[in-house]
């Protein structure tokens, strides 16, 4: 039925289509790639005011904490660096271990990255003494050069929580005595919040890692 000529035509057509397809897919890969390079910067999260025509972005206020090795931690500690912030307490009976597991995943990923640090703020100022924080850090094999577990003035800790978009509330009815969230927040060198994720959701945390990489690649 089919004469050889038609067969020939068919093959030629197939070849053409094949070439076209490969070309198109290569093109789209290239388009994606170049999009990546010129990818938009991470947004600055939070309310902004306009004063005299200038945008004033949401900014983390000044702070002074003390870490597991009794070192004073201030914004100066994170000069020219980005850092990840979470709120927790060492005797937390609910979400903290899961969040810490995910945070450790992030910290391990950026193990040799000097431009990224970690700040875990304890909301239990009574029980989480420096000694207790030290114990906790050792149990979790936390690198003190990379990761600060801090305590400090109670009012500051609760007030500044809002700057970090964390909610921290004392609540005797809550398990362990505190209500708080499992967010991980990315703060940049200008004290702006640039990304966050729910530390209870491993996939969100994986995306967060990409956000951190992007920030470091584009702005540091």
């Amino acid at each position: 039925m089919l004469n050889p000529f038609y067969k020939q035509m068919d093959i030629i057509n197939m070849n053409k289509i094949f070439v076209l397809f490969t070309g198109l897919s290569l093109l789209s890969v290239w388009a994606c790639d170049s999009q990546n390079i010129s990818k938009e910067k991470l947004p600055i999260i939070g309310n902004r005011d306009v004063v005299d025509g200038d945008s004033i972005y949401h900014t983390v206020r000044d702070f002074k904490f003390i870490n597991q090795d009794s070192v004073i931690i201030t914004p100066e500690t994170f000069k020219d660096k980005a850092y990840v912030v979470d709120y927790f307490f060492t005797s937390c009976p609910t979400i903290c271990p899961k969040v810490k597991q995910q945070e450790i995943k992030v910290a391990d990923h950026f193990k040799d990255e000097e431009r990224l640090k970690f700040l875990s703020v304890s909301i239990d100022t009574k029980y989480d003494t420096i000694q207790r924080l030290k114990w906790y850090a050792e149990k979790l094999e936390i690198d003190p050069n990379q990761w600060h577990l801090v305590t400090g003035d109670e009012d500051l800790i609760y007030d500044i929580a809002g700057d970090f978009f964390h909610s921290a509330i004392k609540n005797d009815d809550a398990p362990g005595g505190y209500d708080h969230d499992g967010l991980l927040i990315l703060v940049d060198k200008n004290r702006h919040i640039r990304a966050f994720c729910n530390g209870l959701e491993p996939e969100e945390v994986d995306e967060f890692i990409l956000d951190v990489e992007q920030l470091l690649a584009q702005e540091y």
């Binding site: 810490k100 597991q101 450790i104 149990k139 979790l140 094999e141």
Partner: peptide, 10 residues
Amino acid sequence: MEDGKGLKGL
């Protein structure tokens, strides 16, 4: 943890 492995020394 879901995989039953706990968390480090904690």
